[in-house]
Computed example of a mutant assay.
Amino acid sequence: MKLVSAAEMKACDLYTIETLGVPALLLMEHAALAVVEEMLRLENLAKCKILVACGSGNNGGDGFAIARLLKVKGYQVELLFVGNPEHLTAETKLQKTICENYQIPLYTQLPKNPDYAVLVDAILGIGLKKIVYPHIGQVIEALNQLKLFVFAVDLPSGLSGDSGEILGQAIRADKTITFQFKKFGLTKQPAKQFAGEILVKDIGVSDQPLISH
């Protein structure tokens, strides 16, 4: 199994999108489908109220796509947006708009007395290099305290994809669905402890940049 750094993963993504011409939205859709496929294995998911927490980067875009797929399948799903609306990537902005069109409830603060059973963590991606912003750290801490069954998208938010260290606060996941290649950080502590069961899913990203070097 290939192990990659955050920079190597970014290079593979860019090669797939810019050189091979695979739309970023298509990769996002593949990532969302991979997470939903794994979520459907959870017993009694149909009885669970699901919260999908999204940031403004493409990890958040994966989250919005996951929420829409769950909504279409008839699951109870709500969104928590903790990113900066001015920093939304083009793909994430579109996915967010689609969720709004589907009238999926969207909050910018965690509701009081939440009754969720499952959390999808799509707040931060693998490119995190510095301590999480205080307000995001507070959200992460509050989500951890809810003790939900947590699916992390690519990497639990707040962890370094390279060193595996906690950058301020980090989500504790039960399952981490990482895309295409396992990230170096997921092989190290404390990330291994925070990631829970780690599953690597093929979403169609080329490994050519890894071979070229």
Rank of each mutant, 00 (worst) to 15 (best):
Q169Y: 07
D154W: 15
E165N: 06
L146S: 08
T176F: 09
F149I: 03
E165T: 09
G164D: 00
A170G: 10
I171D: 08
Q145S: 08
P156A: 03
S160C: 08
K183S: 05
Q169H: 14
A170E: 13
V150R: 00
A173T: 08
S160V: 04
L155S: 11
L146A: 07
L167T: 09
S160L: 04
Q180P: 09
D154H: 14
D162A: 05
G164E: 00
Q180T: 13
F179W: 15
T176K: 11
I177K: 05
Q180K: 06
F151C: 02
T178D: 07
T176L: 12
F151E: 02
T176H: 10
K182S: 11
K175E: 10
A173I: 06
I177P: 02
F181E: 04
A173N: 07
V153P: 13
T176M: 13
G161K: 06
K183V: 11
F179G: 13
I177D: 04
I166A: 01
S157C: 10
G158L: 12
D162Y: 00
D174H: 15
S163Y: 03
N144A: 02
G164K: 00
I177G: 02
Q169G: 09
I166C: 06
G164Q: 00
R172Y: 12
S163M: 04
A170H: 14
I177E: 02
F179C: 13
K175M: 12
S157T: 13
V150P: 00
F151R: 01
Q169L: 09
F149T: 09
A152T: 12
N144E: 04
V153W: 15
V153Q: 15
K182F: 07
P156K: 01
F179V: 14
L159H: 09
I171R: 10
K182L: 15
G168K: 04
D162H: 05
R172W: 11
Q169E: 15
F149D: 01
G164C: 02
S160P: 03
K183Y: 12
V153A: 15
K175D: 01
S160A: 05
Q145R: 12
Q169R: 12
Q145P: 08
F149M: 01
N144S: 05
F151Q: 00
G164H: 00
L146T: 05
S163I: 03
R172T: 15
L148G: 02
K182N: 09
G161D: 08
S157K: 10
E165F: 05
I177W: 01
T178I: 10
K147H: 07
A152I: 12
